[in-house]
Design a protein around this nucleic acid. Structure first.
Length: 414
RNA sequence: GUGGCUGUAGCUCAGCUGGUUAGAGCACCUGAUUGUGGUUCAGGGGGUCGAGGGUUCAAAUCCCUUCAGCCACCCCA
């Protein structure tokens, strides 16, 4: 065995971290429900073609980031690097195209073989939504509004800003692509090696380069808007207008592009400066060509995904753990009695801890450690009187309570 | 995948240019307190000094390799 360490880029969710992740997920789930989205879950692995055919053969995800293996049946299987492709596949194989529009929420692990960094893991978790079957810009607006609501609910409106851009329809994008190839081709020698490679695979990416030399060339590059046809322009204008109506602040970022081939029209990212190089906390866009490209009927779609770990790092306080009651039995007779009592109170819906062993002092200490609201002390004296000593652990006051009134008395603590 | 920084107790860190049994605070355990926690006091447990190799009489300390984390690139959640 190599060692008892987690595999690089993976991370245990121990209780404290797990509670943060749970809270983030619950906020997403609750708001998605409010916007009319149903939760769905697809497998965490798919046939590799599901990703290679939809993400684009030349995308970074496909060329170097996928966890791919051959299973015992000889099939090439890939751990999902993102959630949309699986949802699209399920739409087709589950015959869900009869139920459009479809509004789905999902949460779960994703896998990408990348060099880990703060906010970048090899196994990470996302929440996300997909709106399928809505070609109208109002769909984009709803999806973005839901994303904004999630961030607001998590208290992140101050730390994030919304950047949006349009990639136009297929015709506009390929027209722009050609213009860019021509322009950057003329500056080939002066481009960074990274950008020279990008020119072949995805010229739009050069716009986003951080290389100084590249930036000077980019400054003189043709503007996307000049290549947008009227349909693309109208679409984008309607999305922006919708955001204005909802009073969602946004910034146009003409350099915002997407690595995945299936995106068109709207691209957006809620970004933060608190996570170093990993600035995107919730990002998505429109992908009208995806389902068709996968072999289904042409189905428009728009959605986003958000990294749970990234959100967890940004939020301050999460709702505190609910406080238990601690049962403290003293003596053998009480021990047996309390086993039953504890079970009864738990079944009645109370959060109850029964310490397994130890002297009274140790059990009281444990009660304190658990942040218990009160300790219920039962020894021979109490048993004789069919009652329990209830000690309020905040005030230190305690009183004798009849067992008949105990549940009621405890409920009044909450 | 490329470049840089870091790696000592569960956590945060000290340990000077190599020199006896590697320290502190917090946390944990025990006792003072035989049916009373959170405060205080006294005591205690816990470390392959990330791992492997090398130099040396002697390595946490110097060198090499490796693993992991962090930072930037790349890419994005």
């Amino acid at each position: 065995m190599a060692s008892l360490k987690p595999v690089r880029g993976t991370h245990d969710l121990l209780p404290e971290e797990a509670r943060r992740a749970y809270h983030v997920t619950q906020v997403g789930r609750m708001l998605a429900e409010r916007y009319g989205y149903d939760e769905a879950a697809t497998p965490i692995f798919e046939f590799s073609e599901v990703f290679t055919r939809t993400l684009g053969e030349t995308s970074d995800v496909v060329t170097k980031e996928m966890y791919t293996f051959t299973d015992k049946g000889g099939d090439s299987i890939t751990l999902r690097p993102e959630g949309t492709a699986g949802i699209a596949r399920a739409l087709i194989s589950g015959g869900l195209s009869q139920n459009l529009p479809l509004k789905l929420f999902y949460a779960g692990p994703m896998f990408r073989y990348e060099r880990p960094q703060r906010g970048r893991l090899r196994q990470f978790h996302q929440i996300g939504v997909e709106l399928l079957g809505v070609a109208d810009p109002v769909g984009d607006v709803e999806v973005i509004a839901l994303g904004a609501a999630v961030l607001d609910e998590l208290g992140l409106q101050e730390n994030t800003k919304l950047e949006i851009n349009t990639l136009g329809n297929t015709e506009s994008r390929s027209a722009y692509r050609n213009v860019l190839i021509e322009y950057f081709g003329d500056h080939w020698e002066n481009l960074s090696p990274d950008s020279q490679a990008r020119l072949k695979r995805n010229p739009l990416r050069i716009l986003d380069s951080k290389d100084e030399g590249d930036r000077r060339i980019v400054a003189g590059a043709p503007i996307f808007d000049d290549s947008l046809d009227s349909e693309s322009q109208d679409f984008f204008a309607e999305v922006c207008a919708g955001l204005e109506i909802l009073e969602i602040n946004w910034y146009r970022n003409p350099r915002l592009v997407r690595g995945l081939d299936y995106y068109c029209h709207t691209a957006f990212e809620f970004t933060t400066e608190a996570l170093g190089a990993q600035s995107a906390v919730l990002a998505g866009g429109r992908y009208d060509g995806l389902v068709e490209q996968m072999g289904g009927a042409s189905t428009p779609g728009v959605g986003w995904a958000s990294g749970i770990e990234r959100l967890s790092m940004l939020i301050d306080d999460i709702p505190p753990r609910r406080r238990p009651f601690a049962i403290v039995p003293l003596g053998n007779a009480a021990e047996e009695f309390c086993l039953k009592l504890t079970n009864r109170l738990r079944r009645a819906g109370l959060i109850v801890d029964l310490s397994y062993r130890g002297k009274m002092k140790q059990r009281m200490k444990r009660a304190n450690h658990l942040n218990a609201r009160a300790a219920i002390i039962i020894g021979d004296d109490e048993l004789e009187q069919s009652s329990a000593t209830v000690r309020d652990l905040d005030s230190g006051e305690q009183e004798l309570v009849s067992l008949n009134d105990l549940q009621h008395r405890l409920e009044n603590f909450l």
